[in-house]
Simulated assay, not measured.
Amino acid sequence: MKITGQRAAYGLATEFDPFRRIEADTLALADAAEGHLASPVPSCPAWSVADLVWHLLEVQHFWGAIVAGRVQDPATVPDPVRPDDAGLVPGLRAGVAGLVESLRGAEPGEPVYTWAARRDAGFVVRHQVQEAAVHRWDAEQATGRESPLDATAATDAVEEFLEVSTPFRTKDAAAVGGTLQLVAVDTGFRWQATEDHEGAARWQRLAGGGADQAGGADGPGADVVVRATASDLLLYLYRRRPAGALDVTGDLAVAERFALRTGTD
């Protein structure tokens, strides 16, 4: 399947191979973790690098089993047993190979359990890209070898986050109180998001947001505009980059509240 075919099949905003990205970022996390399992992970308080490796190993085991078995009831997936520290990194490397094999073996539209409104294997593929990417960044930051996320995949992940993760704010989160615009300075994508009076988020990709986005809406004026690389925008949404560390024009508090409205567990 060509990359363009994958973009259409998996509903991606950009052109990239999601399977290669899942594998590459997971293996990069494994490389970063080697020899650093006891190190703390600043972006995941109370976790060590060993805990981070185990978390991703668990996650990939679960979603690989969901897709491989076309599972509808997640309670039927057995929990894996955590290996000792010596087995964590080899287990992650082996596990991602199994995950990718399972994901490649399913058609995107095949029904499976997910926690989102989209309940098919294509959703799992798309979301596992950012799961691996963000946790690879966590591990690299913890071990002093931080590098940016892939720009094309991060652009799609920003749009997926707006589409899937932000519809309703979490309990006790404050109202955003304004309109936010995100600008990916490296890939040219632009998005605008706001909340209604009930706390539901609405978003749109703006005109000029991607070379093939002809006729998109310009959007009304925003209360705050956040400009950054696609990598840093995604890390901001995942609360790894504070809004104040990015190029912000307008009401910084709106950007800060937007990042706090969505759970990132």
Results as ranks from 00 to 15, higher is better:
residue 235 L to E: 00
residue 51 D to G: 04
residue 95 G to H: 08
residue 64 G to R: 01
residue 116 A to S: 14
residue 211 A to M: 07
residue 176 V to L: 15
residue 111 P to K: 10
residue 179 T to S: 15
residue 79 D to Q: 11
residue 124 V to C: 13
residue 158 V to I: 11
residue 58 E to P: 00
residue 5 G to D: 15
residue 86 A to D: 09
residue 50 A to Q: 02
residue 169 R to K: 14
residue 87 G to I: 07
residue 47 W to T: 00
residue 81 V to G: 00
residue 63 W to K: 08
residue 31 D to Y: 01
residue 28 A to P: 03
residue 106 A to R: 10
residue 145 R to N: 02
residue 79 D to R: 13
residue 177 G to N: 15
residue 87 G to M: 06
residue 215 G to C: 06
residue 29 L to T: 00
residue 9 A to Q: 10
residue 194 T to Y: 14
residue 122 G to E: 11
residue 81 V to Y: 00
residue 175 A to I: 05
residue 52 L to A: 06
residue 9 A to I: 09
residue 33 A to Y: 01
residue 201 A to R: 15
residue 23 E to W: 00
residue 84 D to S: 09
residue 70 R to L: 07
residue 164 V to G: 08
residue 260 L to R: 12
residue 179 T to C: 14
residue 65 A to D: 10
residue 226 V to D: 05
residue 254 V to P: 13
residue 19 F to V: 00
residue 52 L to K: 01
residue 67 V to W: 05
residue 253 A to R: 14
residue 87 G to K: 09
residue 77 V to E: 05
residue 135 H to P: 04
residue 96 V to T: 11
residue 255 A to F: 10
residue 17 D to C: 04
residue 87 G to F: 07
residue 118 R to L: 13
residue 80 P to E: 06
residue 10 Y to T: 12
residue 157 A to S: 15
residue 158 V to T: 09
residue 66 I to P: 03
residue 21 R to F: 01
residue 241 R to A: 03
residue 1 M to E: 12
residue 253 A to M: 11
residue 10 Y to N: 11
residue 5 G to P: 05
residue 68 A to M: 03
residue 60 Q to I: 03
residue 203 W to M: 12
residue 187 T to Y: 06
residue 97 A to G: 09
residue 34 E to R: 14
residue 178 G to A: 15
residue 107 E to H: 11
residue 39 S to Y: 00
residue 183 V to R: 12
residue 247 D to A: 13
residue 66 I to H: 03
residue 70 R to C: 03
residue 7 R to S: 13
residue 181 Q to W: 11
residue 262 T to Y: 04
residue 51 D to Y: 03
residue 54 W to M: 03
residue 199 G to I: 13
residue 262 T to S: 14
residue 185 V to E: 14
residue 165 S to H: 11
residue 244 G to Q: 06
residue 109 G to Q: 12
residue 111 P to D: 08
residue 251 D to N: 15
residue 165 S to I: 02
residue 66 I to G: 06
residue 37 L to T: 05
residue 200 A to I: 12
residue 79 D to K: 12
residue 199 G to R: 13
residue 201 A to Y: 05
residue 155 T to F: 06
residue 238 Y to K: 04
residue 161 F to S: 06
residue 4 T to R: 14
residue 49 V to H: 00
residue 60 Q to H: 13
residue 53 V to C: 08
residue 112 V to M: 04
residue 142 A to G: 01
residue 191 W to R: 10
residue 124 V to N: 07
residue 135 H to G: 02
residue 175 A to R: 15
residue 123 F to N: 14
residue 265 D to H: 12
residue 127 H to M: 14
residue 183 V to W: 13
residue 65 A to S: 13
residue 142 A to E: 01
residue 160 E to I: 08
residue 119 R to E: 10
residue 68 A to L: 05
residue 110 E to W: 02
residue 67 V to S: 07
residue 209 G to D: 10
residue 132 A to K: 04
residue 213 Q to S: 11
residue 241 R to G: 00
residue 96 V to I: 06
residue 264 T to Q: 02
residue 54 W to L: 05
residue 143 T to W: 02
residue 175 A to C: 11
residue 54 W to C: 05
residue 92 L to N: 07
residue 164 V to M: 12
residue 85 D to L: 01
residue 217 A to V: 15
residue 189 F to Y: 15
residue 17 D to G: 04
residue 135 H to E: 03
residue 117 A to E: 14
residue 61 H to C: 02
residue 140 E to K: 03
residue 257 R to G: 07
residue 192 Q to R: 15
residue 257 R to S: 05
residue 23 E to K: 05
residue 137 W to A: 05
residue 59 V to E: 13
residue 206 L to F: 13
residue 1 M to D: 10
residue 264 T to V: 13
residue 251 D to F: 12
residue 222 A to N: 11
